[in-house]
Design a protein around this nucleic acid. Structure first.
Lengths: 164, 164
DNA sequence: GACAAATAATTGCCGAGGCAGTAGTCTTAT
DNA sequence: ATAAGACTACTGCCTCGGCAATTATTTGTC
């Protein structure tokens, strides 16, 4: 998946800012996941896509893009790679010939348990020492920040019409 | 800065996972910051670099890379752009001729207050409704996760020898 | 039914980052 | 003093993602 920048939105004073810490924490999670998935020849994004499909959260590329806030063009190419690896199968829909259904191929289904295990391993490692209440707090804080980010001065988000 | 993927490290069950939420929250922060900085022709990363230099947290490219966990090659190019814009000045060190000192140019210093204002605006917007204790909790949670990520099975992080 | 608007997937183009290799310089050990 | 190693900055190469067209198809309107 290639590591990414860690730009810092910082409060004027005070130690490390929330933005900076969040970038670091996410990068660590991502690096850990990529490392765990490397043996399978997959990266975090490919795993996430496979997982969404396997869990029935999405059936088409457009679904995936909406849910993951991802660019449709890039998604096409991710799917290409997964298809090349034989983990995914595309099937044109007959009723609406614009859409292409995505199915996790047998090979993909076979791998998934191990991939999931890798995912939980990384997450649990990072959350070591957290009790359930703390994890829940963290979750709510993050959810609140996301919600706050939607309203403000900026009408962002599009990625080819998730609207806004 | 270009938005980035939002890969999801997810717990097997339960709503949105911490990893997923963190990616979303960070992306929102980043998008907001990029939007606020666009009028100045800068992105979040360039701002972060300028800020680190102005605050005296770093004096050279290597410093910046170590502190931001960033690739040295990419950093060189970011500095190139900032120099082109006239916001930054490079000055070869006389004592150790390998290093190049980085100075925020006058034009950069002039812009900084407004850039900082943009940064706080975005952060405060995302933290609307948080009280001081909650922000502090969030900070500690993130710090703990980062710390947890350092030890484990994976000996990551290098970016040209921040070691490990 | 015909035309405009919306939607799905794909592609070309470009910018940006990571990795690895290089040149120049300093440090340390012998 | 010299050789080996470390370190700084920089450069090429490659991959990947975002944006903006493009094509094919469906939906909605008059």
């Amino acid at each position: 998946m290639k590591a990414e920048p860690l730009a810092a939105a910082q409060v004027p004073e005070g130690g490390l800012s929330v933005g900076y810490l969040m970038s670091r924490a996410r990068a660590s999670l991502l690096a850990g996941l990529d490392a765990e998935l490397a043996p399978f020849g997959l990266n975090a994004m490919q795993y996430a896509v496979l997982k969404h499909l396997a869990d029935g959260n999405a059936r088409t590329a457009a679904d995936l893009c909406r849910q993951m806030y991802y660019d449709t063009g890039s998604m096409t190419r991710i799917l290409d790679r997964l298809e090349e690896k034989g983990l995914l199968r595309r099937e044109r829909c007959r009723d609406d010939r614009r859409v292409v259904f995505l199915h996790v191929a047998a090979a993909g289904r076979a791998q998934l348990p191990r991939l999931r295990a890798a995912g939980t391993r990384v997450l649990e490692n990072h959350l070591a020492g957290f009790n359930a209440a703390e994890v829940e707090h963290l979750r709510t804080y993050l959810a609140r920040m996301i919600e706050n980010g939607k309203l403000p001065g900026g009408a962002h988000h599009d990625t080819r019409t998730g609207k806004s």
